[in-house]
Amino acid sequence: MYKVKVYVTLKESVVDPHGSAATKALQKAEFTEVQDVRIGKYMEVTIEKTEKNIEETVHKLCRDLLVNTVIEDYRFEIEEVEAK
């Protein structure tokens, strides 16, 4: 069994209104050293072992369902775990 950690972020060219709001709020709260915040998503997906290539499966899962690849980038980490 695999535990896959998927990290999704907006592409650098995409404006991040949530990140801008967080930056302003932190600076108002006297965290003046904070220059920029970018907000993203984190997901954990548990995948059963099969004959399929796990990396190809995760790429397809991300591209087809979890990520809007027009405006978002993604990366992932795969960890083999024992079945529960």
Rank of each mutant, 00 (worst) to 15 (best):
Y2M: 08
K3D: 04
V4P: 05
Y7M: 13
V8R: 00
T9F: 00
K11W: 01
S13W: 01
S13Q: 15
V14G: 07
V15E: 13
P17N: 13
G19Q: 12
A21V: 11
L26Y: 09
Q27H: 02
Q27V: 13
K28F: 02
E30T: 10
F31G: 06
E33H: 11
Q35K: 15
Q35H: 11
Q35C: 06
D36S: 13
V37W: 11
V37L: 11
R38K: 15
I39K: 14
G40H: 01
K41G: 08
K41R: 11
Y42S: 10
Y42D: 08
E44G: 02
V45K: 12
T46R: 13
T46G: 02
I47W: 02
I47V: 14
E48M: 08
K49T: 13
T50R: 10
E51M: 07
K52A: 14
I54Q: 05
E55I: 04
E55F: 03
E55A: 07
T57R: 09
V58W: 01
H59N: 14
H59C: 02
K60N: 11
L61K: 02
L61V: 08
C62F: 06
R63I: 08
R63E: 15
D64I: 05
L65H: 06
L65W: 04
V67R: 00
V67G: 03
I71K: 04
I71H: 02
E72N: 06
E72L: 04
E72H: 05
D73V: 08
Y74F: 14
R75M: 06
R75G: 06
F76E: 07
I78G: 03
I78Q: 07
E80T: 13
V81Q: 08
V81R: 08
E82D: 08
A83L: 05
A83N: 08
K84L: 07
K84H: 05
